[in-house]
């Protein structure tokens, strides 16, 4: 979104409505009993879609230079690196590694 791009009103209101619907959906899903990991996956999936909507339209990444999107995604990448590698430790603390025989 450059200095001269005026935010479209309809899109803004539409985004807010979509966010509301998704919030209601996520609470509704909470009361439905999915098998164990699926619950978390659905909840996080909806949250991710909501966050993406906020980023694209409220924060204007949809119209903006692609580099700003790259900046945002880089933070997610490095967060995933951090949690991914830490889980390599915390989930396998007691597992002996076969290389030592």
């Amino acid at each position: 979104m450059s200095l001269h791009h005026v935010l479209p009103l309809k899109t803004m209101i539409g985004t807010a409505v979509a966010l509301f619907v998704l919030t209601i959906l996520t609470v509704a899903v909470y009361y439905i009993d999915f098998p164990d990991p699926l619950n978390t996956i659905v909840a996080l999936g909806i949250a991710t879609v909501k966050a993406a909507l906020v980023c694209m339209f409220f924060m204007g990444l949809y119209w903006d230079t692609k580099f700003n999107t790259l900046v945002l995604l880089s933070s997610l990448l490095f967060f995933l690196i951090m949690i991914g590698i830490i889980l390599l430790d915390t989930l396998f603390r007691d597992a002996p590694f076969q290389i030592y025989g």
Partner: peptide, 18 residues
């Protein structure tokens, strides 16, 4: 960003991560 655990080889982290 991928290598910090080499400070922790004797800390008790999992052998896999070492």
């Amino acid at each position: 960003f991928l290598v910090w655990g080499h400070h922790m080889f004797v800390s008790g982290q999992s052998e896999l991560s070492s």
